[in-house]
Design a binder for these strands. Sequence first.
DNA 1: TCCTCTTCTGAAAAGCTTTTCAAATCGTTC
DNA 2: GAACGATTTGAAAAGCTTTTCAGAAGAGGA
Lengths: 342, 342
Amino acid sequence: MKMKPTIKDVAKLANVSISTVSRVMNAPETVVETKKLRVLDAIERLKYKPNALARGLIYKKTNTLGVVIPDIRNPYYADIIRGMEDASKMLGYNLIICNTDRDRARLFSYLNNFYEKQVDGILYTSDPVYPDYYKALQRLQMPVVLVSTHSMEYRLPSVKINDEQAAYDAVKYLIDSGHTSIGMIGFHLSDSIAGLPRYEGFARALREHDLDDSKDNVVFVNGWSYDTPDAAAQLIARFPSVTAVFTSSDELAIGLIAYLHEQGIRVPEQISVMGFDNIRWGNLSIPKLTTVAQPTYEIGFRSVMKLNAIIKEQDDSELREYLPHTIIERASAKILKSFSSP
Amino acid sequence: MKMKPTIKDVAKLANVSISTVSRVMNAPETVVETKKLRVLDAIERLKYKPNALARGLIYKKTNTLGVVIPDIRNPYYADIIRGMEDASKMLGYNLIICNTDRDRARLFSYLNNFYEKQVDGILYTSDPVYPDYYKALQRLQMPVVLVSTHSMEYRLPSVKINDEQAAYDAVKYLIDSGHTSIGMIGFHLSDSIAGLPRYEGFARALREHDLDDSKDNVVFVNGWSYDTPDAAAQLIARFPSVTAVFTSSDELAIGLIAYLHEQGIRVPEQISVMGFDNIRWGNLSIPKLTTVAQPTYEIGFRSVMKLNAIIKEQDDSELREYLPHTIIERASAKILKSFSSP
DNA sequence: TCCTCTTCTGAAAAGCTTTTCAAATCGTTC
DNA sequence: GAACGATTTGAAAAGCTTTTCAGAAGAGGA
């Protein structure tokens, strides 16, 4: 394999100095027409493209962003990444994507890696920021945006939805539909993003409508795995009169529906199910999933825009941004009575 | 924001030359103990990490691979990426991931980008290699592995399953289960990967078992969108006696099941459905999807291993590798009679 | 003590580009 | 034709690291 042509080769072929070649590319108006044409011709003939490493060394800028994400196989993250990618393309960045599996060591290793590769900024997705993570992030001395997570302790910019309010709205939808026995399958309260706030929204909705919000009506699962059937069984056993279940993710919802189907319990006739996230597949489930939509693509897109603004030192927006959620009415939640206007 | 420490700062603090610092990091046995300790201490105190740009410039190696992929939101690709990521982590690479949306201009722009950023190799996923793509790839003078696609015209290494055989096996499964009226929803024959070979496998299976393989039993969809309902309606209209449908992707299968459910046609009692790909969600559909599993994760993993071998110039394996597929028996295909042993 | 042979160490070059600065060229004007 | 200013050009430095090469320091023997 022969060597890639360098600016030197172009200079030689065009019979000018390398400075002139550089100028043709970066400030063409400063070089006289005849030489410019010679240089352009040489560039074309050699198919010369400048080496981004050398450039990065000078500009101290690589036009590359680092992304840490728990697992790209999760469609929720895949959507976010897509939004990031499109914004990056628009702004001229590339994305280095790393799966952490929520593993401390793996995360730290990737952060180091980002530092060495001189990425211009970091997108930290979806995990709570623990004190030692914060310290690691600090030490990097790099712009960071938290994506689909945030931190109240630390002054870190973030982009996400308002989870508490979204959960509240979801449960309110069920209440407005006439349900009074509402259960929940959610993530552990130690999860400060998808766990606690969604439970709090759930509980607040029940409380504000004078319904039973005892913890008996809630089952918490840890992690994001497929042990939904157990959780579902537990919930039904503890709360047999339940007519509607709010779940903290569409995966949980779909798992729940599958379980209920196996048990011969019809959805939504006997039990209504409300999901959370609005992943693509909710549209193909049977019945189609009623859910609260996170604007995943926009979260990704917006977080890159924000990170870019910070890098360019022109961030004018809120430190913590909240993007709007919406309820997607499909077929998995039954309406017992029409909504009462407030 | 204060400047990142450089090797120079370390040298000054440890009161040695920069060469010595470099040696401590790259050949520690050649430097005398007392200085080594001083240097190590300085590195620790300054939290110094070498600049990968400068290193890349010297070694002509960035430990970065470029990935072009149609759309990361497609769970099939997401799985592949995950396999790539894990292999990359193991081998010390990072992945720059780019969505092409199967858009020529976007693809070319990213390839240029990879060239400028001096990636060590390219993973080209899932699209057929058209002549101009090949020319572009050639010009880059970079190692490439085709992932989940291949090329018979050009001498390019690739990793994928044997699509024709996999489709054959899937249809044979239906035949062995006792079905004789078998339809297909597939991708256009112009798609030389997911289209033509799977149709050929389908047709061969029917032919070899003396069943009707006229094209009336097949509906082709273009693209990967959600116009499955139309296709499903067409198939049923043209081929009302169908008892089993082979689809070229799980998305098509799930779309088909959703359509049949809406029409009041029971799966698998009235119509059996066989998917292709074994995406995660097939496990949660109702009924659970019978499908042929592509080893997506392994395809991703293996393609990075192969690319690495090529980069290191120690590739010993086949130019075109085919990984084994398997039939996943779940509930969407009905067994009319038990298998006859051949 | 001097010489030779190792072992360590530092200066400098190389890798590729951009940018600064001074020199060279050009065109005007007197 | 000379002088001036404006325009254009090339040499060299800078950005950060590794590596080569020659010189310095040390050890060992005579």
